[in-house]
């Protein structure tokens, strides 16, 4: 149980990174590749947040007057991840626009078939 408590978030985060990387390495469909990129992104964000956690910590918000600053989790990874998520959606939208454009000029989403075609 102690092992589970110590490592369950890390297992989740690196499981997501591994599956996302596997999708990127194995698949050849462009949209599938972008799905893998988004899963990888989620995994990295989850790892950063779980590094910032403190046992029995509270969220870093002084919502009531009596809250003590001692037991609060680290706000720096949270601020980083907040910006990373928004950048992630921008990159994803740009990648999907490129995929749509690719489909329009080649008529396929498969990278293997496009290799044989020339400009």
């Amino acid at each position: 149980m102690s092992f589970l408590h110590d490592y369950v978030y890390y297992i989740g985060a690196f499981g997501l990174v591994a599956i996302g990387l596997l999708i990127i390495l194995v698949k050849r469909n462009l949209i599938k590749l972008i799905i893998g990129l988004s899963i990888l992104d989620t995994g990295v964000n989850m790892f950063l947040i779980s590094v910032g956690y403190i046992n029995r910590g509270t969220a870093p918000i002084f919502s009531r007057p009596g809250l003590e600053p001692d037991g609060m989790v680290d706000p720096v990874p949270q601020a980083l991840v907040l910006t990373a998520i928004v950048i992630g959606v921008a990159i994803l939208a740009l990648a999907l626009a490129l995929a749509v454009r690719f489909y329009k000029s080649y008529g396929t989403l498969d990278l293997r078939k496009a290799k044989e075609l020339r400009w």
């Binding site: 110590d6 779980s50 680290d74 720096v76």
Partner: peptide, 21 residues
Amino acid sequence: LLAIPFGAPKTEIGDYYIENA
């Protein structure tokens, strides 16, 4: 990952922000 324990305080700057924000 064995060197990064889960749930332990890690950064100084986070404590500074919480104290002084």
